[in-house]
C-alpha cells in the first residue's frame, strides 16, 4: 500500500477545509485563544501585526520560534506563520516547528528581489499573495497551494483588496471568451504558464483556494470580499487594533458565514465601537506600499 504525504492534493486540501472561514493575525497565545473562541478557522502567528510593522519600520522577519510554539500549544485550529519572500531557510524552520501553513508574505521585508521560494521542495503547504491573475498563477506554478489577494496590509482600507480580487475574477471571466490561440498569447502577456491558464479557464476559477486579505477592517468589508468571489478572509490588524477585539472577531466571523444575508449583516455591524484607524492610500508613498513587493 502506497501512502503519500506532502502531495499537492493534501496541501491544497487543507485550504479547502479553511473555506468560508476567517484567518486572524495574532501576536500572543492569548490572542490566539480569543480568535479561536470567536470562530476563526486558523490563526496567523506574527511578532507584530502589519499596522505595527508599518509604524516601526526596519526589517520585518519571521517570528521567534518561542512565540510560534506558544501559539501552536494554545489552540487546536491550524497555525500559519509568515516568511520573507524568497527566504527558504525561514520556511524550513517553520516546517520543522510544525506550522500548518507558510505565508510567503510581502508584509515582511523581502529576502530576494527576484525569486520566490520553490515551494514544491516542501511538505508544508504555502499561501502567497497576488494582485492579478498572472501573479496568482506564477505562485501556483512555484507550488503555492493557496492564494490570497495582497490588498494593502495594515491600512484598514479595503480598496486595494477589492482592486486585486476584481482583477483576478475579471481576468477569469475574460478567459471564457478566448480561443486557444488567444489563450497562448494571453498567457505570455500575463507571464503565467499556459497550462495553468487553460486549467483556470476550464475550472472557471483559480485552481486553488483564493482568500481575500489586506485591509479588511469591518464585517461589511469581509462580506464584500466574499460577494466578490473570495473563498474566505484573512484579517490582520483589523481585529486586535479595533476598540473591542472580541466583538469584532465574532462579528467578522458571522459576516463571513452569512455574507449574503443583509439582515444578519446589519445586526452584526451594530455597536462594534471603533474599527482600526485607517490609512488613506493617496497619502501612502510608493516606498511604503507592501503590495508592490513580489514579482
Amino acid at each position: 500500500m502506497v501512502v503519500e504525504t506532502g502531495t499537492q492534493t493534501v496541501k491544497s486540501g487543507l485550504a479547502e477545509m479553511l473555506k468560508g472561514g476567517v484567518i486572524m493575525d495574532v501576536v500572543t497565545a492569548s490572542q490566539a485563544v480569543i480568535a479561536q473562541e470567536a470562530g476563526a478557522c486558523a490563526v496567523m502567528a506574527l511578532e507584530r501585526v502589519p499596522s505595527d510593522i508599518r509604524k516601526h519600520g526596519g526589517v520585518a522577519r519571521m517570528s521567534d520560534p518561542t512565540k510560534i510554539r506558544e501559539i501552536i500549544g494554545a489552540v487546536t485550529i491550524p497555525v500559519m506563520a509568515k516568511v520573507r519572500i524568497g527566504h527558504f531557510v525561514e520556511a524550513s524552520i517553520l516546517q520543522a516547528l510544525g506550522v500548518d501553513y507558510v505565508d510567503e508574505s510581502e508584509v515582511l521585508t523581502p529576502a530576494d528581489e527576484k525569486l520566490h521560494i520553490n515551494k514544491w521542495d516542501f511538505a508544508v503547504p504555502f499561501v502567497c499573495g497576488c494582485r492579478d491573475l498572472g501573479e496568482a498563477l506564477r505562485r501556483i506554478a512555484e507550488g503555492a497551494a493557496m492564494i490570497r489577494t495582497k490588498g494593502e496590509a495594515g491600512t484598514g482600507n479595503i480598496v486595494e483588496a477589492v482592486r486585486h480580487m476584481r482583477a483576478v475574477q475579471g481576468a477569469i471571466r475574460a478567459l471564457a471568451g478566448m480561443d486557444d490561440e488567444e489563450l497562448v498569447n494571453y498567457a505570455k502577456e500575463i507571464g503565467a504558464p499556459v497550462e495553468l491558464v487553460r486549467e483556470t479557464k476550464r475550472l472557471r476559477r483559480l485552481p486553488v483556494v483564493n482568500f481575500a486579505a489586506g485591509g479588511v477592517a469591518t464585517p461589511a468589508d469581509a462580506a464584500l470580499m466574499m460577494r466578490l468571489g473570495a473563498d474566505g478572509v484573512f484579517v490582520g490588524s483589523g481585529i486586535f487594533k479595533s476598540e473591542q477585539p472580541q466583538r469584532m472577531a465574532d462579528a467578522i466571523v458571522r459576516a463571513t458565514t452569512h455574507y449574503n444575508d443583509d439582515q444578519i449583516l446589519a445586526e452584526v455591524s451594530t455597536g462594534l465601537g471603533d474599527a482600526m484607524p485607517g490609512l488613506n492610500l493617496d497619502d501612502l508613498p510608493d516606498s511604503e506600499r507592501l503590495a508592490q513587493r513580489g514579482w
Binding site: 504525504t5 493534501v10 516546517q95 510544525g98 506550522v99 500548518d100 501553513y101
Partner: peptide, 9 residues
C-alpha cells in the same frame, strides 16, 4: 500536523 496529512488506496 499538516505535514503528516496523506493519501492512499
Amino acid at each position: 500536523r499538516q505535514v503528516d496529512s496523506f493519501e492512499t488506496d
